[in-house]
Nucleic acid binder design. Structure first.
Lengths: 278, 278
DNA sequence: GCCTAGGTCCCGTTG
DNA sequence: CAACGGGGCCTAGGC
């Protein structure tokens, strides 16, 4: 039996099922009216409403409202989720006298350290619960990533500029990592920053940072005098597109934009076609 | 009835339940062995395995493996999820001759435009399905945010520096927004960038950009000559902490770091305590 | 463990 | 609508 479903379980049944699921490494899904509370990097409270709760064996905990991609409350994996019975009533608000006839509610508490934080979901009314003994060995394989774009450029530097020669990939500097360090046809050093998506001001910032770093660390040690220094390093921002503001920022700072959209098989085919032209 | 559960539904039942749920604006959860495929900003494939599928009435679609905070495949809200029956067999791979006795499988296809993309989950084996007519009017209320940090600083500028006077909050420049524009005790202009979390190199970048922008736009128009220009603007990065690299980048570029961790009631109390010291 | 940078980032806000 | 910046971002890769 891979899945076990409970319909409208009472608090004790929720606790029991949750304990068993966590013990056995199963995934748990609960449809419930609940409250949420978070305390950690910030703190927050979510009033009662219908949500889906998901707890994974790695400690991941998710609270999903009926809209939106992101969980309204969550805990990343690495911590633990523990079920416990608690007094009824609101998590927040005045502590009313606990009359004996108050219903107890099931609570799912997710915690972790570093950073220290916790999410608590008070299940006021469990509509459905599913235990799922899931087994999944597959991993997602993706193409079209920035890593592939890097590979493509490394193999075909001419798509950026005729005569460009890649010297180093992922060069570390004291201010961060440069995507490519290269030299142009005249041997002038070129700092290259590559983005898979439309370039933003932050990307311009990064390139600017790397270029100034290069100017400082390379020009100064030379003793200053032989080379012009600042003039002798170029900065290239490579991306499929860029807003006008970004283009202007680049121009104003003597940096260059290279539009590179398609890459991979198509572009490779184009390169091969080129070769046959000779 | 808020929740309807099906145990090991066959493909036709999955389709039927999904159609009904989407028509009525209910949330749908399916525990299933499935394949996943994404095509859009990148493209990717996920082989068969056990996952939880969640479809929301706003078009959000999530595929969750047994580990990890993030869905392995997803579609943000705004699009549509449509169920349909399809041929059995792998989504990827050679198109085998479709012998008549192949089982048909339920497929959930999530699509949107702008960007144009789609996620397809081929449900090879549905273990469980839950329809949830959820109603949730609550929204999450959070404190400890950067906005609150801004308010606090605006009310207590002295925590940054004695004699600092806030001139403007969220000043727009042609290259972006400055958190605070201020003047120090000597009337020297100060650009302030505030971060709620540990400062990163990108945050340094932002401040550096704003400061250079200020130097250009303010110093140049003046005709250059009266004021020293570059020397006469300070940049402050305010955050609870910063790595050594970030501190060095700031120092090397004549920018300043101000450590500001606690704020709000505690810090306010500290300020008040200080006042009583006089 | 910290630091750095990417992400199918998502999301809100503003022009 | 694009664009810019925040996020309890999360996650992977180095060191």
């Amino acid at each position: 039996m891979v899945v076990e479903q409970l319909d409208a379980p009472d608090p004790e049944e929720v606790i029991e099922a949750a304990k068993a699921a966590f013990r056995d490494g199963a995934m748990l899904t609960v449809q419930a009216r609940c409250e949420g509370e978070y305390e950690g990097r910030t703190s927050g409270y979510l009033g009662p409403g219908d949500r889906i709760l998901v707890a994974k064996p790695d400690g991941t905990f998710l609270v999903h409202q009926p809209t939106g991609h992101k969980p309204v409350n969550w805990m990343p994996g690495g911590g633990t989720v523990s079920p416990r019975l608690s007094e009824g009533g609101a998590a927040r608000g005045a502590a009313e006298e606990s009359s004996g006839d108050e219903p107890r509610v099931a609570v799912l508490l997710a915690r972790r350290t570093n950073p220290s934080e916790r999410v608590e979901a008070r299940i006021l009314d469990a509509h459905g619960l599913t235990r799922f003994d899931a087994s999944d060995g597959a991993s997602y394989e993706e193409s079209g990533t920035e890593a592939e774009m890097h590979e493509y450029i490394e193999q075909n530097p001419a798509v950026l500029e005729e005569g460009l020669r890649i010297v180093e990939h992922e060069r570390e500097t004291k201010y961060g990592f440069i995507d490519f360090f290269a030299r142009d046809a005249d041997g002038v050093p070129v700092v290259v920053e590559v983005k898979r998506i439309q370039a933003t001001l932050n990307h311009f910032d990064q390139l600017q940072r790397y270029v100034s770093l290069y100017e400082e660390s390379e020009a100064s040690p030379r003793g200053g005098g032989v080379t012009a220094g600042n003039e002798e390093v170029r900065g290239l921002l490579v991306a499929p597109s860029a807003s006008e503001r970004v283009r202007r920022a680049l121009r104003d700072n003597d940096l260059e934009f290279v539009e590179l959209g398609e890459f991979g098989t198509d572009a490779k085919g184009a390169t091969e076609a080129k070769l046959t032209d000779f």
